[in-house]
């Protein structure tokens, strides 16, 4: 015996939908209420519009902070959403004109169909602006007391494409214990992976297939923190936040062992793993859209303060000054 009529069913479905709608509709935008850090952009008329940014997850923390402060400085009249789909994925969107700025942890690949060539085809004009320096840090477990310093050749023996499946530490150096090397590294889509393989293995993307890969660097941290014979590499910020769980390996690029520190990364003494990280603004759009130009101006003016706050190394002043000039010339001309 059924007394429920179909109208009841429809009514209930509608009620459920409306209940959810009411929750969404009742919400109001929360104004940003942060401290005023950095200098607000000097402009007469209030800026407006939306600046979309995608790209490297390495650059993301800096861009997010700049975006937040820029929006605050402009009373939230400009919207700056930021995503991170990786340096390469970001360039694909940037070169089709979908985004206004791309975050990049390596230079654009000029001959790549999805990157340089696509930008050329679609008439997307860009400049490369360095916004910080990152020191790729090679880390081991704190209980590892033998591998205090590794040469570039030794790193290539560990991470190179021809590396053995069951590689022993004693294969790297006879004085090391005969224990298997547990290798961890970032995923192949990351600029970090690209840069490391190019600098250490001599060819971008050429690497051992016997390492555990993860797109999430925190997974790599956990892996190395829990295994005496593990090794990994990732951005300096992840090491700085986990110095109690990890030990940084000094790297010998030919001129002796150098530990990654703020100073050695800034002076490029920590070679070859000090790497510049960039933003690529769309110059054509910036000429027509004052808010985009203002955002990049603001970025360059404050990047050293913001990048150090989130764990990166500042760009030397002379490099920055030259960039500002290059940017002004590109947009002005």
């Amino acid at each position: 015996m059924i007394t429920t009529r179909p109208s009841r069913l429809a009514a209930l479905a509608l009620t459920a939908t409306l209940a959810i709608a009411a929750c969404g509709g009742g919400a109001t935008p929360g104004p940003s209420s942060g401290p005023t850090s950095g200098t607000p952009t000097e402009s007469m008329a209030p800026l407006s519009g939306t600046i979309t940014i995608d790209g490297s997850s390495t650059v993301y923390p800096i861009t997010e902070l700049v975006a937040e402060e820029f929006q605050f400085a402009n009373n939230n009249t400009v919207q700056v959403p930021v995503a991170f789909s990786g340096t390469g994925g970001g360039f694909k969107k940037f070169c089709t004109g979908e985004t206004d700025i791309n975050d990049a942890s390596r230079p654009i690949k000029a001959e790549d169909e999805g990157e340089g060539l696509a930008c050329e085809t679609n008439g997307v004009e860009w400049v490369e602006l360095q916004v910080a320096i990152d020191g790729l840090t090679v880390v081991v477990n704190p209980a590892n007391d033998f591998a205090a310093c590794l040469t570039v050749d030794q790193l290539a023996a560990i991470y190179g494409p021809d590396s053995a499946e069951h590689l022993l530490w004693s294969d790297i150096d006879p004085s090391f214990p005969a224990e298997e090397v547990q290798r961890y590294m970032p995923g192949a889509d990351s600029g970090t992976f690209d840069y490391f393989t190019e600098e250490i293995n001599g060819e971008t993307d050429a690497a051992t297939t016997h390492a555990t890969q993860s797109e999430d660097d925190n997974t790599l941290v956990t892996g190395v923190a829990g295994d005496t014979y593990a090794i990994a590499f990732f951005g300096y910020a992840y090491y700085v936040e986990n110095t109690d769980k990890l030990k940084a390996v000094e790297v010998d690029g030919g001129d002796g062992c150098v530990a990654p520190t703020d100073e050695t990364i800034n002076s490029n003494e920590y070679a070859p793993l000090s790497r510049p990280i960039f933003i690529y603004p769309d110059v054509g759009k910036a000429r027509e859209r004052p808010e985009l130009k203002a955002f990049v101006d603001y970025y360059l003016a404050n990047t050293n303060a913001f990048s150090t706050e989130v764990g990166y190394i500042a760009v030397p002043d002379d490099v920055l000054a030259a960039e500002v000039a290059e940017w002004e010339a590109a947009v002005g001309g």
């Binding site: 919400a27 935008p29 979309t52 993301y60 937040e68 919207q79 700056v80 959403p81 995503a83 991170f84």
Partner: peptide, 18 residues
């Protein structure tokens, strides 16, 4: 194309969201 850092409330038919 969802964004990660979005400080405004999304408009359903235009604009970015998270």
């Amino acid at each position: 194309g969802a964004f990660t850092f979005v400080t405004f409330l999304p408009n359903p038919i235009s604009g970015q969201y998270t």
